[in-house]
Nucleic acid binder design. Sequence first.
DNA 1: TGTACATCAGTGAACGCGCGTTCACTGATGTAC
DNA 2: TGTACATCAGTGAACGCGCGTTCACTGATGTAC
Lengths: 219, 219
Amino acid sequence: MEKSVAARTFGRSEPLVKSGYHHGNLRQALVEASLLLIAEQGPTGFTLSEAAKAAGVTPAAVYRHFGGRDDLIAEVARQGFDIFAALMHYAYSDGKPTALAAFEATGRAYLAFARKYPGHYMAMFESGLNLNAHPDVALVASKARQVLEQAAEGLSQHMPPNKRPPATMFSAHIWAMSHGVVELFMRGNGAKSPFSPEDLLEAGIGIYLRGLGLLPPDR
Amino acid sequence: MEKSVAARTFGRSEPLVKSGYHHGNLRQALVEASLLLIAEQGPTGFTLSEAAKAAGVTPAAVYRHFGGRDDLIAEVARQGFDIFAALMHYAYSDGKPTALAAFEATGRAYLAFARKYPGHYMAMFESGLNLNAHPDVALVASKARQVLEQAAEGLSQHMPPNKRPPATMFSAHIWAMSHGVVELFMRGNGAKSPFSPEDLLEAGIGIYLRGLGLLPPDR
DNA sequence: TGTACATCAGTGAACGCGCGTTCACTGATGTAC
DNA sequence: TGTACATCAGTGAACGCGCGTTCACTGATGTAC
């Protein structure tokens, strides 16, 4: 049941294609092959067979590690939410001159994540994955969401209590704007903008925070 | 080449399924069948064959009217952008007590469109349609975008010229937030929010506009 | 240390399926005479 | 008004394809003795 350390180490260093009859780390290799395929062709174009082929393995072998195609995508998304949550957490707690700066860093981190982990991002948000059918993914996803809401909560302390909107609400606003910027202006569809997604989002968040009274009305 | 008025009228009143050997209005019937299928199963699940079947016709008949599956989706999207632009235009010019109110109405209209025309919306924004491959769709899409930018331009007049952000920019902000709200909080994925998408977006736009100095800092 | 054995991650062949697309055709419709 | 004909929107059979999934199997690996 327990693999030897050597076996695991060997598996780690053999990222995508197997060497002998046994692969050593096929499960993760399949996840990584899927990532590349999804990033290239979108979650629609992704197929179990291609992922298996890219990992140097027969399609049937996939079923030793996953329940099927859906399960494989779900695992990609799960790992994505995990990375996402960690990245957000890091961006928030590390950019800590002020709660405000930390919050802005969180917004930038969102875009950075979408750029750096396109396969994960697509599996998470564009694959039509039903979170209810994959409770383990839903769990990690809500953990990620909590990081965002915690950041919003921290920021909320700096507002006069009587006109504080709920933290969940403006966390949702920032999330929505970030996601919208990614979908509309960072994808390869024809919709062009004269601004980079990063500049666009930063300006947008700035204006929004000013609206909350957290930034001075003039610069 | 020119159909009789009677034939066209008959075709109009016979929306989805043909009566005789000739359909009369198969082209539009296919578009409408596709709309239902896309709304139900997402753009991924949509197939040319099912659309043909729903219209009461052999798959091969589709090729009398469209170049293929892609062309059919593109036409759905094109009609969507057309409706979208009209709706936005109407919302803007009709909600005209003030430029501000008109702009807010535009935001609400965005959500209303996504709710009322889910098949169109999905074909437009979630089908992975490449606008560059369909110049006619790109044209209507940019027309729709211009409506949004025109609304932003009108609003821009009410700001002191020295600290006016470009209209294209805050049009993009509102569009992004609207789109993000639709994708994250109006779809059947597990992500729940304690607020309705409509309330969420209205509050978000309000805060944003306050940040622009277009609303008083306090309510 | 060497041998027998259990484990189980892989193979490879096969399946049924529905897809998009093509092709020669057919039959309803409108028009010319 | 009636008939011959051109048009062209539909049929239906067929295709090749790649998909996800299953199954009995095989062979590499680690372990017990």
